[in-house]
């Protein structure tokens, strides 16, 4: 793992460049097991930056999140670059955003960081309870050393990192201008056994499960807002004309919303798990996305966000695509 001094020095060097407007990284949060995203605009901000196992946020979202009000008459738009720090999974979002031409390759400077897994705050809460103060956590081999309340605790890495990390195939960024730290080995292959397990349920059980889950949704749209691939300026769920989804929260509209969201991410989900992480009412959103990811892989042999040269899945076709169910 990259040490914070190297990271800060690199950040300082990059943000000092004339052609760089802002740099997006992580800094220590105010409490708990999650770091906070940090957007720095001058070299002094670089001193706050860190990278460790608490850096869960996928920062790629922030490239497209920025709202740019119209430039006043007579002024030139600021076209300087955005520098961004990415983990392996985050880098796939950058690739896919480039594939979809969300911005140009020259608009971003990608500082890749090999990652050995990030902490799942829900697991951490089970393990450590409610923790006051920010936690530091570094990976040392198979162990995670967490500094909780001034006390160092060693935990088996597998027990504390997110599920996505346990099946991570891309711990090293797939795209980067500079790599900070040494590459790490990938942990395991993804066999989609969880998807296969869920598929065994009967249709009635499946619906009973989703009925309960979707009913909880308060439609805060945090799953959409946090998603690096949900960057439409106007989202179909908030459009009033036509209004595909009503605003009322009931099982019908909530289901429609979640189907829309999952559908819009089929063949685009890069499995950073952010949607599921941020959900305040713990809806297992990735269970929807992963089914799509598996099908996309099996049916079309396509994996989103690994190659800048590919075409988006649903904006392309193969005349030999499977069509067993078509009459």
């Amino acid at each position: 793992m990259v040490d914070n001094k190297t990271l800060q020095n690199k950040a300082r060097e990059v943000i000092s460049r004339d052609d760089v407007r802002r740099l997006i990284g992580w800094k220590r949060g105010t409490f708990g097991f999650e770091a906070a995203p940090a957007v720095i605009k001058d070299p002094s901000g670089a001193d706050d930056l860190i990278f460790d196992a608490t850096c869960v946020n996928n920062l790629a979202s922030f490239i497209t999140l920025e709202e740019k009000p119209p430039v006043p008459r007579g002024e030139e738009p600021d076209t300087r670059k955005t520098a961004i720090m990415v983990k392996g999974c985050d880098s796939r979002a950058i690739v896919l955003q480039l594939v979809e031409k969300a911005y140009e390759r020259d608009d971003v400077i990608v500082l890749g960081i090999p990652c050995s897994g990030v902490i799942d705050r829900r697991k951490a809460r089970e393990m450590f309870g409610d923790v006051a103060g920010a936690v530091e956590a570094t990976c040392e081999g198979d162990k995670l050393v967490c500094e909780v309340g001034g006390e160092k605790k060693e935990v088996d890495r597998k027990e504390l990192v997110m599920d996505k990390c346990l099946r991570c195939r891309y711990p090293n960024p797939v795209i980067s201008d500079e790599l900070l730290g040494d590459e790490v080995e990938k942990f395991a292959d993804d066999d989609f056994s969880d998807v296969a397990e869920f598929a065994k349920k009967s249709p009635a059980d499946k619906w009973a499960f989703w009925d309960e889950q979707f009913s909880k949704c308060v439609r805060c749209y945090s799953c959409r807002s946090v998603c690096p691939m949900c960057y439409c300026v106007e989202c179909v769920v908030t459009n009033l004309r036509p209004q595909w989804t009503r605003r009322s929260t009931d099982i019908s509209e909530n289901t429609a919303y979640h189907l829309q969201r999952a559908w819009h991410l089929s063949g685009r989900c890069i499995e950073c798990n952010e949607c599921e992480r941020v959900c305040p009412v713990d809806i297992p959103i990735m269970t929807l996305n992963r089914r799509m990811t598996r099908d996309v892989k099996e049916l079309f042999d396509y994996e989103p966000g690994v190659d800048v040269e590919t075409e988006p899945l649903l904006a392309s076709f193969n005349p030999q695509d499977p069509e067993e169910f078509i009459m």
Binding site: A199, L259, W263, R291, L299, D321, P322
Partner: peptide
């Protein structure tokens, strides 16, 4: 093809 699988899911 994908939407049908999603509905099935």
């Amino acid at each position: 093809t994908l939407m049908r699988n999603l509905m099935e899911h």
